[in-house]
Amino acid sequence: MTEAFRDRIDIALTVNGEAVEGRVPAGRHLIDFLRLDLGLTGSHASCEHGVCGACTIHVDGQAVRGCLMLAAQADGAEVWTLEGLTETGVIRDLQDAFVERNALQCGYCTPGMLASIKELLDMGGVPDRATIREHLSGNYCRCTGYEAIIDAVESVAKARAGEAAA
């Protein structure tokens, strides 16, 4: 680590709807800022090189990798993690479907998986199974074999479409 990386940067952002300020090392990844500085351990670090998707969170409305973004880059951003998405209830139906369908086993990929699925469901409509599978192919799960996750997403998409039509 060079001297340049030891420099600290002041940031101000909103996380889960709350205003947050911090003074972070320039090299601090957003996922580490959330976990270590804010105690938001619902987001998980896994591959730490942007492949597995376990650290996926929402930044300014988009699903992004918390391990590929620096905390300094989140200055002024609106960040949502699983804790906040849970409190607001926006993915309650999806969480319930995950439990009912056993779409998680060890649960380590689940926070990132839910963040990616939220992005897909927010697009509206009922994606077919191949589309769901394609959308989730940036999120690794070593436990479930994926099928239960696809089932859960499909059921929620259908339920939401049904409600929208009603």
Binding site: T41, S43, F98, V99
Partner: peptide
């Protein structure tokens, strides 16, 4: 234990 894990309340 599943509800805990889907709500980000696991303890690894």
């Amino acid at each position: 234990n599943a509800p805990r894990l889907v709500q980000g309340r696991g303890k690894y």
